[in-house]
Design a protein around this nucleic acid. Structure first.
Length: 758
RNA sequence: GGACUCCUAGCUCAGCUGGUUAGAGCGCUUCAUUUACACUGAAGAGGUCAGAGGUUCGAACCCUCUGGAGUCCACCA
């Protein structure tokens, strides 16, 4: 029974799209209003959160269009580097395949295939939701347009000395085989053993007691550090301790970063595998040893543990120490262990060659200007500012295949170790570097050969996503970089900064803060005027929806069962800015059902008002039609002043109040309040009271009935686009007896109702 | 350790800058019985707005404290 309705929705969508109603027009004389769709990650299907985002964006877009703005609702998709690669590799694993087995070329083929599948699914869902986006401007983050923007970003950073490459300690995910940044980690509470180990003092029977959770890394210990003036250990300063595994002499040093009350107050220093140790090692100019490989195995630095996985090595190391009588005691303790946010693998801090961006100057500029952005809820201003104040350098390289490959080429002969610097044999370029004049391959200035190899790594996803507000509008696509032509497209001039952007709070730093910094840095202007953080939908126990928990709610199923409009309305009821909400399939069904019923009510109202109109007022229908077509907002004039019944006056007053309240609430992004008002006005004020009261004076009330109905449809259209359009066209065709909609009669083109000035 | 948010009817949630008897949906009770609409209508029960104190003529809303739930950031040798 719902099938034909879905069919009508699809037809309507096609009608809108073909008529070009979704398209922005940069040449228009209208005031622009721009909304940027946060690009969903192309690694999996859209979920309820996406559906809510799309419902909100679409509502605002439709509202602004009706208000007479030139609306740009720009869609796009993110390649989602590490996330996508992880998902695909898991799929390949099931087929018995892997990255290594396939090789880069074949793997990339599969990757693009997988991307296309998801992409198609996105489009289906978007259209099903009624998203009125300008499809002609859709952007994918790996397309040439974005590549050029990314190149520009990279090159500019390089020229400004904000970019560096080097071997530093990083958070390494052994499963994904790449460095990740702090924001991509989370912590898991684990119960582990805490070993108290004796490090012998060289040339004495004395020892220094050290507490550690990682005995397997002892071979890479290069010092023992105590906090300054430790009452028990201070006398040992200047002496050497002996590494329990390698018997190497290691110095005992003082450093105030050691906590006196943690463990024994003495810390083993392993600069190769711990962030704090790395810092302390740097200060004291200690060597760096590697005992954990990028695969998460012990290296040959420790012959006893060589090749073992971390966990195995830990037990064995403890065993060996125990045999040597070096373990004083073992405690059980719980602490949080950093894991990869994506694959939950334990992170191994280790030294790796990576690229970094110096963020201080960008953050400072952002801090100066962040006040120009209107955040909803407004406390996000503080949250993001606080983070910006504490910013550290951004590690932007990832050892993946899926993403923007770092646009740096090294001379194979002169720069085999891929060193980086103004005086090194390297070139920044998307393609194999060419000479701009001859078009031939560029020659290395040292060896005059043209054998270039590109950097193996790709850029962090957010390096490109951070440019989203600019790249989508053609930032730096108008000129090649060497030409110096205008870098601002018409679109960029017109639609940047964006009027509205929204997102889930979980990517406020990864994405939003980056966009703010990059936008200000490159455009000298904030990227968006209104930044809306919606709440997170959670299950009834307050957990996030996730595939692994299997507690997700498929928006597609809701739409199938209750219709798009009903599903949208249910989502608006959860859209209060920044408010998390608990829900379940059952609760979503209840709400959807309620709004499905509301839709039916509206359908019945229309049947009553239009289909069952009294015969004698056929003549007034032409008035209605003119009214509808002209539809000047201010012209929602009220019908026939002379015969105003008191009930008419009341309903028109209520209508007026509804208009101003709904308008105000949409403008302040309180969609949940707008829908609530419309619901109670249409159902209770209009249907239950007014319509009932007009039954004994139907003919007299008919013009008011039609007027209120028509205006209600308009007010409701941004929220329930399909039903309102269907009924709107029905009203028109009932007047002229036509069946098919004529262009320019869509409710989308009607003007937003204004309240009548009394 | 630092920051933020929340606790309102059985359930899920609204309640703008403090202002008359605190709202919605679902659920519940009673009635109406084919009405444009049963995907309905009418009537109703149900809340000392987490607790305590304070400011105020007046507090669900502002301040302080306590309790509970959750999120984020930092850290856990």
């Amino acid at each position: 029974m719902d099938k034909p309705k879905t069919k009508i929705d699809r037809d309507l969508y096609e009608y809108w799209e073909k008529s070009g109603f979704f398209k922005a027009d940069p040449d228009s004389a209208k005031t622009p209003y721009s909304l940027l769709i946060p690009p969903p990650n192309v690694n999996g299907p859209l979920h309820l959160g996406h559906a809510m985002q799309h419902a909100i964006l679409d509502c605002l877009a439709r509202f602004k269009r009706m208000q007479g703005f030139d609306v740009l609702l720009l869609p796009g998709v993110d390649h989602a580097g590490i996330l996508f690669e992880g998902t695909l590799n898991k799929l390949l694993e099931k087929e018995g395949l892997s990255k290594q087995k396939l090789g880069r070329e074949e793997w990339m083929k599969r990757a693009w295939q997988f991307k296309d599948e998801n992409y198609q699914a996105f489009h289906d869902t978007w259209k099903l939701m009624g998203l009125s986006a300008d499809w002609s401007r859709e952007v994918f983050t790996l397309e040439p347009k974005v590549q050029k923007a990314v190149l520009e970003e990279f090159k500019t950073f390089w020229d400004q000395d904000l970019l560096y490459k080097g071997a530093y300690i990083v958070q390494w995910c052994p499963k994904d085989q790449t460095a990740i940044e702090d924001l991509e980690m989370e912590y898991e509470e684990r119960q582990e053993k805490f070993y108290y180990i004796r490090y012998k003092i060289d040339g004495s029977d004395d020892f220094i007691l050290i507490a550690t959770a990682r005995p397997e890394t002892i071979a890479a210990d290069v010092a023992v550090a105590i906090y300054p003036n430790h009452p028990k250990f201070a006398k040992l300063i200047g002496k050497m301790a002996k590494n329990p595994f390698t018997a190497t002499k290691i110095p005992i040093i003082e450093d105030k970063r050691v906590e006196k009350d943690f463990g024994t107050g003495a810390l083993k220093i392993t600069p190769g595998h711990d962030l704090l140790d790395y810092e302390i090692g740097k200060t004291h100019k200690l060597p760096i040893l590697h005992v954990v490989s990028k695969e998460g195995h012990i290296t040959n630095l420790d012959p006893n543990l060589n090749g073992l996985k971390i966990i195995e090595a830990r037990d064995k190391a403890a065993g060996i120490l125990n045999e040597k009588g070096l373990i004083e005691k073992v405690e059980e303790y719980t602490h949080s262990v950093p894991v990869c946010e994506r694959c939950k693998t334990t992170i191994e801090p280790l030294i790796s060659e990576e690229w970094f961006v110096k963020m201080k100057p960008l953050a400072q500029k952002a801090l100066k200007n962040i006040g120009k952005i209107c955040f909803l809820p407004k406390n996000y201003h503080k949250i993001i500012s606080d983070w910006l104040k504490e910013i550290h350098d951004w590690s932007i390289s990832r050892s993946l295949w899926w993403g923007h490959r770092i646009p740096v080429w090294y001379c194979q002969k002169c720069n085999p170790s891929h060193e980086v610097g103004k005086d090194k044999d390297m070139v920044i370029s998307l393609e194999e570097p060419k000479d701009p004049d001859s078009g031939e391959l560029k020659k290395c200035q040292t060896c005059r050969l043209s054998r270039w190899v590109q950097d193996e790594q790709v850029l962090d996803t957010w390096f490109s996503s951070g440019l989203w507000p600019m790249a989508t509008l053609g930032w730096f696509t108008r000129r090649s970089l060497d030409e110096g032509g205008p870098n601002r497209t018409k679109e960029l001039e017109r639609y940047y900064p964006w009027d509205f952007e929204l997102t889930a709070p979980e990517i406020k730093f990864l994405w939003i803060a980056r966009m703010i910094m990059l936008g200000l840095w490159f455009m000298d202007e904030i990227p968006f005027k209104n930044m809306f953080f919606h709440g997170m939908l959670r299950d009834l126990q307050g957990r996030k929806f996730s595939k692994s928990l299997g507690n997700g709610i498929d928006p597609y199923e809701l739409v199938e069962q209750w219709g798009t409009d009903a599903a949208r309305m249910a989502l608006y009821s959860y859209s209060a800015p920044g408010r998390d909400a608990k829900t379940s399939r059952q609760i979503m069904d209840e709400r959807c059902k309620n709004y499905r019923n509301f839709g039916t009510k509206l359908r019945n109202i229309t049947r009553f008002v239009i289909d069952l109109a009294p015969e004698k007022i056929t003549s007034s229908s032409s008035t209605l039609r003119n009214d509808v077509i002209a539809s000047e907002a201010k012209q929602s004039k009220h019908p026939d002043e002379r015969s105003v019944h008191n009930d008419d006056r009341i309903i028109l007053e209520q209508l007026n109040q509804t208009i101003s309240e709904v308008t105000k609430n949409i403008e302040s992004f309180n969609l949940h309040l707008a829908t609530e008002k419309l619901y109670s006005f249409i159902w209770h004020d209009f249907a239950d009271i007014y319509i009932e009261d007009t039954k004994n004076r139907r003919a007299q009330a008919q013009p008011t009935l039609e007027h209120v109905l028509k205006t209600s449809l308009q007010l409701l259209h941004p929220f329930m686009p399909f039903l309102t359009e269907e009924l709107w066209l029905k009203i028109l065709s009932s007047v002229e007896g036509q069946k098919l909609p004529h262009i320019n009669e869509s409710i989308m083109l009607s003007n937003w109702p204004g309240s009548i000035d009394n």
